[in-house]
Each structure stands twice: as structure tokens, then as C-alpha cells.
């Protein structure tokens, strides 16, 4: 009981903060729009993928990207909690660390789900979302991917002690995951030696599931995508809980 109450308390706090920090919400929506309009529009003028409008092709990829970046950044936000000492208040409360982790994860997922909704609505207005069922499935795929990626972000955030590591995480985690996921081009186009990276990247399966929901095409099949994302989420959640338990404050 204390476990669930504790997790609920953390989740509630994350929601309050999210809706109060309007800058975060706005920037989380503007960046993907730029990708779709500027990058997709500029490049799309000269190319098409599998006979498909390029912008339409990358829309699911860009939604996935916003899930990836939003989720991992949320996880890294734990560092600010550490810096601002609010985390002490939480860690000294009679709440198991795993409950703190769960609350954080739910908070991050909620933030990202709000972002996905906004993007899907804009996508529908631009003509990239054809059906409500597709949109709902995309929302589900995004939520699942977010569960996986928030957990990963929290693992890193729990280990990091200062914001200086942000760039390292960007260079070694976020950009590689994004660029080898097939968000911007079919993964078949990547050089063969990257195949292992593509295959072990959970993001690949998130993009695949998102594309299946919105465009009806898939490389691996819904069942496999779901299994990989769920499996990765469980592993990351276990590691994240452990990371929170070991987190030390001096």
C-alpha cells in the first residue's frame, strides 16, 4: 500500500511540474515539427521511399524520435532533482526506492504521451494520420517505447552526478539510437556492419511498431516488436530500480 501511494505521490508531482514548465512542453513539440517540415520537406522534394512521400514516411520516425529524446531527457532530469535537493525529501520519505522509480517512470511516460497526442493531432491536420485506429495504435506504440526509454534515461540519470555528462549521453546513446533505428530511412540502406547495432537497438522496434500503426508497413512484425520492447522495458526497469536503490546522496 505504501508502495503504490509513494509511487502515486511521485507521479503526481511530475505531472504538476510538467504542466507548469511550459517551455518543456512547447520545445518538445516544436523540434519534431521542424524535422518534419524543414528536413522532411527539404529532402522530400527530391526523394521518395518505396514510392511514398518522404514526409509521410518519416512522420512515424519523427514521432518515435520525440519519444526517445523526451523520455531520455526526462530520465536525466533526475540530476536536477539531485542538484535542487528535492530528491532528498523523496529519498528520506518512508517510500521504497523502487516505488520512487516507478513513480518517476509513470511521470515520464505521462509527459511523453501528452507530447505524442499533440504530434498526432498536428500530423492529422497535415494529413499524415489517416485513421483514428491508426492514431490510437501509434499512441500505444509510443507509450510502450517511452516506458522502455524513460527507464533507460533513469538508469543513466541515477548514475550521473553532474549535468556535464549530458553531451556524452547525447553522443553515445541518443544520436546512435536515433540514427540506427530507421526513423529517417529504411534500415536496409545502412551499411552491413551496422546490422548488429540496428538489431540490438530497442528503438528500431519502436519505430517499426509506430510505422506499422500509421503506415501499415513492418520489417519484423507486430508480435516481435512488442516482445522486444516489453522485454527491454522489463530489463531496464529492473536495472533502474536497482540504480535508484544504490543512489547515494552525500
Amino acid at each position: 500500500m505504501g508502495f503504490l501511494k509513494g509511487a502515486y505521490a511521485i507521479w503526481y508531482r511530475e505531472l504538476l511540474v510538467f504542466f507548469r514548465e511550459k517551455e518543456r512542453v512547447i520545445s518538445a513539440i516544436i523540434t519534431p515539427l521542424l524535422w518534419i517540415v524543414a528536413f522532411g520537406g527539404g529532402l522530400g522534394a527530391s526523394i521518395s521511399v518505396n514510392g511514398m512521400n518522404y514526409q509521410e514516411y518519416i512522420f512515424p520516425g519523427i514521432v518515435s524520435m520525440s519519444v526517445l529524446f523526451g523520455s531520455i531527457f526526462f530520465g536525466l532530469y533526475v540530476i536536477w532533482d539531485k542538484k535542487l535537493d528535492f530528491l532528498k525529501e523523496v529519498l528520506v520519505a518512508p517510500v521504497p526506492r523502487s516505488a520512487v522509480f516507478l513513480g518517476k517512470m509513470l511521470g515520464g511516460m505521462s509527459d511523453v504521451i501528452v507530447q505524442i497526442c499533440a504530434l498526432l493531432i498536428i500530423g492529422a491536420l497535415l494529413g499524415f494520420v489517416s485513421s483514428l485506429t491508426g492514431a490510437l495504435l501509434a499512441l500505444f506504440a509510443g507509450a510502450l517505447l517511452s516506458m522502455c526509454m524513460v527507464s533507460l534515461g533513469l538508469i543513466i540519470g541515477a548514475k550521473m552526478s553532474s549535468p556535464e555528462g549530458f553531451n556524452l549521453v547525447m553522443s553515445f546513446v541518443m544520436w546512435p539510437m536515433f540514427l540506427t533505428s530507421g526513423a529517417l530511412f529504411p534500415i536496409e540502406n545502412l551499411p552491413n556492419y551496422l546490422e548488429v547495432v540496428v538489431k540490438i537497438n530497442p528503438m528500431t522496434y519502436g519505430v517499426d511498431l509506430m510505422r506499422l500503426a500509421l503506415l501499415g508497413t513492418t520489417n519484423f512484425g507486430a508480435g516481435f516488436d512488442l516482445a522486444v520492447l516489453l522485454g527491454a522495458s522489463i530489463v531496464f526497469m529492473a536495472l533502474g530500480s536497482k540504480g535508484f536503490e544504490q543512489m547515494q546522496l552525500s
Binding site: K5, G6, R13, L16, R20, P94
Partner: peptide
């Protein structure tokens, strides 16, 4: 980012 009241309420939640 929270109000005084919200901080108190959060604390009450955390302590069950």
C-alpha cells in the same frame, strides 16, 4: 515549481 500547499500535500502523500 510547486506551491507551499502542494509541497505540504506531496509530503503527506509520501508519508502515507
Amino acid at each position: 515549481l510547486l506551491t507551499g500547499w502542494e509541497n505540504m500535500e506531496l509530503h503527506a502523500l509520501l508519508y502515507g
